[in-house]
Design a protein around this nucleic acid. Sequence first.
DNA 1: TTCCTTGCAAAGGATTTGCACACCC
DNA 2: GGGTGTGCAAATCCTTTGCAAGGAA
Lengths: 152, 152
Amino acid sequence: MPTDTAQQLQRFHAFLSGEGLKVTRQRQAIAEAFYGSGGHLSLRDLLDLARESEPSIGYATVYRTMRLLADGGLATEHQFADGHARFEPAEEGEHHDHLICLTCGHILEFESDAIEQIQDRIAADYKMKVKSHRHEIYAECLRTDCVNRPSA
Amino acid sequence: MPTDTAQQLQRFHAFLSGEGLKVTRQRQAIAEAFYGSGGHLSLRDLLDLARESEPSIGYATVYRTMRLLADGGLATEHQFADGHARFEPAEEGEHHDHLICLTCGHILEFESDAIEQIQDRIAADYKMKVKSHRHEIYAECLRTDCVNRPSA
DNA sequence: TTCCTTGCAAAGGATTTGCACACCC
DNA sequence: GGGTGTGCAAATCCTTTGCAAGGAA
């Protein structure tokens, strides 16, 4: 478990308080599942994890909690090729794209200033200014033992 | 209308014959809508266009015809941020990504060998081989008259 | 004629919402 | 106690499929 999970949960509590929202057992369980994992989890994944500590939790609660986090800037939502929404913790000022292993499904992150610069130049050629982008690389692992398999 | 629409329709007929499939009024109308437009149309767009010449056409027929074209390699399907499937004619050996205007919704195409090379290098760093990718840039047009607005 | 196609309507699958009950402050 | 939050179930939205009737070869 990452060492900063506690910090992230604290930030979550501060966010809820700031919005005048309540800290409930369900929200706590969902946030722990979300921050305790490596990210890129689907709503179904989060539901299953959250139910380990709160078995009665419902899908709609996970949905609403993650929407809360996403709208509040604490989580980022992605739609990869599998068609399910996936979430990851939002890091302040950080940006990355994704490299998805077709062998095992694991999702790696990458950053490339060079690509970002080229994007800006392409947009500028059309007199446009980049507001956001989506960039996913789907690749096969060349090793038979697929080292990218998540430790989970 | 592009000068090669007739060629593309001919290729479509050849494809149908080759598969032992029939050239129907509906398929003809859908193919004309598809090839006669600039591409990037949703199923709904195609349905509306096709109905101009074949009013009784149904959504399922458009869906099935576009699937036929996509599976046959004559059309490429994309899922942009709006969550609707969009299709464009597939060009032999050609590849491009998309620059989407947030001002008017128009979809431009771009290519960058430099980006493709960086992608390959990133994947290689993880001992992986790129099989495909998805790259979309969402940008605002800086001109008040938004020159990217489609002529339609 | 023969079998492919079509259009309708219903089924899927993921997401979103309405509502009555439960819970936190 | 009062208003927020939850869980269920139903509603959406887009996509996909079953089926009986229609149409190309």
